[in-house]
């Protein structure tokens, strides 16, 4: 079985987002980075499927040179190899991201055969475009099911559970397929020390796609005005309990 998983490097924003001077990006000077949360679950699911069925797993990302850290993180969890679509750090829109990933996936499939499953996050944590996985699926003419909280192989098909308002909708689609997943699909493991060591020597193939002019063109970012909450202190320690109960009574929840 062959599985690909596409991830995105995003900053860990903490409590308050600060923008760069030109307001076109987040000031990441003092921030760490991670892969987008939904995709962590995509990586975990890929690793579990390969552990159970044997085969080859590949992680792909489009991002700056530093995004190799997130590729190594995925390989530390058990992914076999990586393809890094290097950028100069500029923002790519969903359409161009999908096109670049599609080229890389096609090239890999030409040499190694089709992927049974390609995982994406349902949407990235930062730009939230909700489209990259679907665009790749459409171009490959493969079925795509989105927002998945459970994935089960059933012979040459995959059973997919999608969270909806009143429970879960079930889809069964033939492989090969493209699946976009959400956090909660599984509980991603922590990388082991041997896993981290192995990841260092796993292969990373670099490609440098050209960035087309974005048709969804970022002009600037804004931090929205706060919700205007002004915290009233009810005191400190256990002595504040009566004041808290007063608040509950006024709110009509007691």
């Amino acid at each position: 079985m062959r599985i690909a998983v596409c991830i995105k490097r995003v900053p860990i924003t903490g409590g308050r987002i600060v923008l760069t001077a030109d307001a076109r990006a987040i000031n990441t000077q003092h921030l760490g980075f991670t892969m987008s949360p939904h995709e962590e679950c995509g990586v975990e699911e890929a690793v579990r499927l390969i552990e159970a069925n044997k085969g080859d797993s590949v992680v792909l990302t489009l991002g700056p040179p530093e995004a190799v850290e997130q590729l190594r993180d995925a390989m530390a969890l058990g992914i076999d190899r990586a393809i890094h679509l290097q950028t100069d750090g500029q923002e790519w829109d969903g359409e161009s991201t999908a096109a670049a990933l599609l080229d890389a996936i096609r090239a890999d499939e030409t040499s190694n055969g089709p992927f049974d499953i390609i995982f994406f996050g349902n949407e990235s944590a930062d730009s939230g475009g909700f489209q990259v996985g679907l665009r790749v699926a459409y171009a490959l003419n493969r079925p795509c099911v989105t927002g998945l909280k459970r994935v089960t192989l059933e012979g040459s098909s995959v059973r997919c559970e999608q969270e909806v308002e009143d429970g879960r909708d079930v889809y069964v689609v033939p492989l090969p397929a493209v699946l976009t997943v959400k956090e909660g699909l599984n509980l991603p493991r922590y990388p082991s020390v041997p896993g981290r060591m192995r990841a260092r020597s796993k292969p990373v193939a670099d490609v440098t796609p050209a960035r087309p002019a974005p048709r969804l063109e970022l002009v600037k970012l804004l931090v929205p005005a706060g919700q205007g909450r002004r915290a009233e202190s009810l005191g400190s320690g256990a002595a504040a309990a009566p004041a808290v109960v007063d608040v509950f009574q006024k709110a009509g929840v007691l």
């Binding site: 939230g128 970022l218 002009v219 970012l221």
Partner: peptide, 12 residues
Amino acid sequence: RWGGSLLEEARL
């Protein structure tokens, strides 16, 4: 963006 923690002005 970021689930509403940030806004983006863009040309389409």
